[in-house]
Design a protein around this nucleic acid. Structure first.
Lengths: 200, 200
DNA sequence: ATCCTGCTAGACCGATTGGTATATTTCGAC
DNA sequence: GTCGAAATATACCAATCGGTCTAGCAGGAT
């Protein structure tokens, strides 16, 4: 059972973007890796590379969002959820020979035109992800202002740890960071005024 | 007074790498922006683009290291130093129209060959930077293990915040993160066993 | 003056870039 | 079976990629 051409294009493009970013994705190589003819790319994505990458980014961001949301609501405390999320990322890094990474970060660092669709998508992605952590922290009783800035640090650390682990080809830092963030978040929750915790 | 060609090449290349990474730096554009003839590039950097970028990265990493070290030793507490560092980055982001960034992160996310010189440089850079924060925290009395993981989170947050701010074209998150990290670090220092603080 | 060295200048190269054009195949509706 | 749309397959394109090559300039040493 072979997936259809469009799907193959999107999935290979997602891998390539994570690994190399916008400028590093060569259309010819994409076609080879996804075993798709040139004609099919421009049939499914008439506007070419940019449209393909925008689609890939949209889907990638959504997948991350779903995954974060699932783990945040499945775990008892935000600290534990965050640790689980980072530990899962550590495993994904190892399983992918350190090609796994954020769907957005490589694009942000590729100097795309500020107004472009892809650039807009990356901005929205971070707003959404920080928002998820924020909500989880607030629900656990952390005061609004602290929840906001702590959520930002969690997301930023996650993104930064992905880079550091890639640079070292070692998922160790991600696991260390997972524990540290869990501790920080647990402390913030513990310091929260009693009786303010909302049920999820 | 015009700087010499080699200097112009390195400085323009540094800007371009920060903004667009390895694949996004086009030699022809670099030559135009630095107003240098093609021959000069290959005279000063016989191995071409890779050698140029390796040089640029080495110098960029060193500059960051010096800057971090200076601020860490100039400020009274590590928390305050970290806040200052991030606030300076926030200003740099705004002053550069959000082209300012890490000299290494774009390269890590450009899928370079694992054994290449450039890849090695990025790994060493993170080891060095995390080490600086680690030393500062340890000197302030934070126990070794905690100092290590906290230093890692500080560096990762910094790198992540640079990305988030670029994505939003807004240095706000960097300033918010600066305050949050200061709080986290101050708390860790305050919790340190008394009498263990070393003088810098 | 001449020679050498450090550097500049730019023509030129094959390979690859993203994209277009058109012919052909596939496949469901009827 | 026949028709038409959906999709595939490739040949082709100008532009740009990073890199090579050689000719010449500038300026100090002798």
């Amino acid at each position: 059972m072979v997936k259809d051409t469009r799907t193959r294009l999107v999935e290979t493009a997602a891998d390539l973007v994570q690994d190399r970013g916008y400028h590093g994705l060569a259309v010819a190589e994409l076609l080879t890796l996804s075993d798709a003819p040139r004609g099919s790319l421009y049939f499914h994505f008439p506007e070419g590379k940019d449209q393909l990458i925008a689609t890939v980014t949209r889907e990638g961001v959504e997948a991350v969002t779903d995954s974060l949301r699932a783990t945040l609501s499945a775990e008892k405390t935000p600290g534990r959820a965050i640790r689980k999320i980072l530990e899962a990322a550590a495993s994904a890094l190892e399983a992918s020979d350190f090609r796994f990474g954020s769907p957005t970060a490589p694009l942000v660092l590729d100097g795309l035109q500020a107004g472009s669709e892809i650039a807009a998508l990356t901005g929205e992605a971070y707003t959404g992800w920080v928002g998820l952590f924020d909500t989880a922290l607030t629900s656990a009783g952390v005061p609004a202002k602290r929840a906001q800035s702590l959520a930002l640090i969690v997301e930023a650390s996650f993104e930064g740890l992905l880079i550091i682990c890639r640079a070292h080809r070692d998922a160790g830092p991600m696991r260390v960071g997972a524990r540290e963030l869990e501790g920080i978040v647990d402390a913030a929750v513990a310091a929260a005024p009693r009786g303010r915790r909302k049920t999820s």
